[in-house]
């Protein structure tokens, strides 16, 4: 993989996040809700709503990671080429961190909007359940010994296939506090630009982290192979 990928995406992410923060706090309008008579109602979140731009951007990456990891795991099981496994593992590990951000920011949002830290809002519930699958994957990788890659790959594939079921399940179990329509669609025009720039910036950040993790896994293996070569030739002991 090209050495430039990480720096380029890293810089893009840094610039993008800076721009997104500026847009979110300086440009995007505050969020108000009005009663029919014109008075502010209880759904006004003011500055609290700003967390949404970062929360959803992270959630998108969490969902993307489930599919990246699942598809790469299929490729790994089919070909047994470690390069696929590296990508699956890197995407999952990074997504666990992103998922933690999703859950924490979601909890803050819930506190502001509904005055509880956790209320089983469907999209947040779905994030939690996917995050648990990814966390399980990381635990398997860590504790399943020499066959961990294969078993974790199975978990990633089953996890990916389970996504529509989780979606259906939480949808049917929907909390009244949240509407069924997407929040993104209800954003005002000033909010929309800030939102999509934020998503793009965190996508770059996600890619940079995943690629860096893949490269470190690859470097680790190359180092080991070199050491084995040295041992084979009797140069090392």
């Amino acid at each position: 993989m090209n050495k430039l990928v990480v720096p380029v995406f890293g810089v893009l992410a840094a610039v993008g996040i800076a721009v997104a923060v500026w847009l979110v706090f300086m440009q995007a309008p505050l969020q108000y809700g009005f009663h029919p008579d014109g008075a502010l109602n209880g759904s006004s979140l003011f500055y609290n709503q700003k967390i949404f731009y970062f929360h959803v951007a992270h959630a998108f990456m969490l969902f993307a990671a489930v599919f990246v990891s699942g598809v790469c795991s299929i490729a790994f099981l089919k070909t047994r080429k470690p390069k696929w496994d590296d990508v699956a593992m890197a995407a999952t590990e990074v997504a666990v961190a992103f998922g933690a951000v999703v859950l924490v920011t979601g909890s803050v949002w819930a506190k502001a909007a509904w005055d509880v830290w956790w209320n089983w809002e469907p999209r947040l519930t779905m994030s939690l359940l996917l995050w648990l699958v990814l966390l399980g994957y990381v635990l398997v990788r860590r504790f399943a010994g020499p066959s961990a890659d294969r078993i974790a790959a199975g978990m990633a594939i089953f996890g990916m296939v389970g996504v529509p079921f989780i979606y259906k399940m939480v949808g049917q179990d929907s909390h009244p506090a949240a509407g069924r329509e997407g929040v993104v669609a209800t954003l005002g025009p000033g909010m929309r630009a800030a939102f999509w720039i934020s998503v793009a910036a965190f996508l770059c950040w996600f890619v940079a982290l995943v690629v860096a993790r893949v490269q470190s896994a690859r470097a680790e293996r190359e180092l080991r192979e070199l050491r084995e070569r040295g041992l084979d030739l009797g140069v090392l002991s």
Partner: peptide
């Protein structure tokens, strides 16, 4: 054959 990063067979 490799098990993770362990080499079990090398050619």
């Amino acid at each position: 054959k490799r098990y993770g990063s362990e080499r079990a067979l090398g050619g």
